[in-house]
């Protein structure tokens, strides 16, 4: 590890001030991705700004027809939370499948969404459920938030405060796990929302999470496992790597959507 400084502010305003002071300064949420990259010397922060001392970033509340999850809420907390399990069970299931129990005890929803790993689970839920990312300065709709490979709409110094998930009529998540890394090789989150049927795919796109038009069209006509399975997804913009070809990922997308809806994923 390179040397770095460490700060632990107690308010979002103080954290933003420190982060804005120098572009080398970086926020530290759970650190389950960030710390390994620092250890590999792929990342050299000036000051790590630990967000764990900011109380307002943690917690889960139901506000009318929306579930609001604080950015520093851990995956384990989301997975076990009665409010989430009742309102959006697919989201609780997704959180309970990330990484392993120790990663889930420390890793956070805000960290996952800020990092926007192309194979992270949470971006698919945020995009499919038409979530709103509430930051220290504004509210960003999920459709505008995800901007490609490890890229988001967040500006330097801007922090995710919470994520608001409108409660869907129905939702399901299916992932095909890469057995060594525990990341989804393909993850598909499908939802019947107030703004129509939405289906988001993670783990497969060259530019990160994306909405799958073919799935959305088919499921709008018939929201069923059978309809999902019959969909043909083009492999054009999908990833090929040592784990799977683009064609293989394209074939997995309808299967994971189908298993998600059938409850067998």
């Amino acid at each position: 590890m390179y040397e770095f400084q460490y700060a632990k502010p107690s308010t979002v305003a103080d954290a933003s001030t420190t982060l804005s002071a120098d572009e080398a300064n970086q926020p530290l949420a759970g650190g389950q991705t960030l710390i390994p990259t620092i250890k590999q010397r792929l990342n050299a922060p000036g000051t790590l700004v630990d967000l764990s001392g900011i109380g307002e970033l943690t917690g889960i509340t139901r506000e009318g027809s929306t579930i609001v999850i604080g950015a520093m809420t851990t995956h384990a907390t989301v997975a076990a939370n009665a409010t989430v399990r009742d309102a959006i069970p697919a989201l609780a299931k997704l959180a309970g499948g990330i990484g392993d129990p120790q990663v889930r005890n420390i890793g956070t929803i805000g960290g996952s969404l800020a990092n926007n790993d192309p194979a992270a689970d949470y971006p698919s839920a945020a995009l499919a459920l038409n979530a709103t990312i509430k930051t220290s300065t504004r509210e960003i709709p999920a459709d505008d938030y995800f901007q490609g490979f490890f890229t988001t709409a967040l500006e330097p110094g801007e922090l995710i405060v919470s994520v608001a998930f409108p409660i869907p009529e129905q939702a399901a998540y299916g992932r095909f796990e890469q057995r060594a890394s525990r990341y989804p090789m393909v993850g598909v989150f499908v939802a019947k929302t107030a703004s129509g049927i939405r289906a988001a795919v993670t783990g497969a796109g060259q530019d990160g999470v994306f909405r799958c038009a073919e799935l959305e069209t088919a499921l709008t006509s018939d929201f069923s496992a059978k309809a999902a399975e019959a969909v043909k997804v083009p492999a054009d913009d999908l990833m090929s790597d040592l784990h799977a070809s683009a064609d293989y990922r394209a074939a997995l997308i309808p299967i994971m959507a189908s298993r998600a809806i059938a409850g067998t994923a």
């Binding site: 710390i35 630990d50 764990s52 120790q102």
Partner: peptide, 25 residues
């Protein structure tokens, strides 16, 4: 690299990988 779990300890009652946590945290 936070994959093997040989370093698991409990922090405030929950298991975590101590190789992926700073002492200052």
């Amino acid at each position: 690299t936070s994959q093997c779990g040989a370093c698991v300890v409990h922090i405030d009652g929950k298991s975590a990988k101590s190789c992926t946590r700073l002492a200052t945290q």
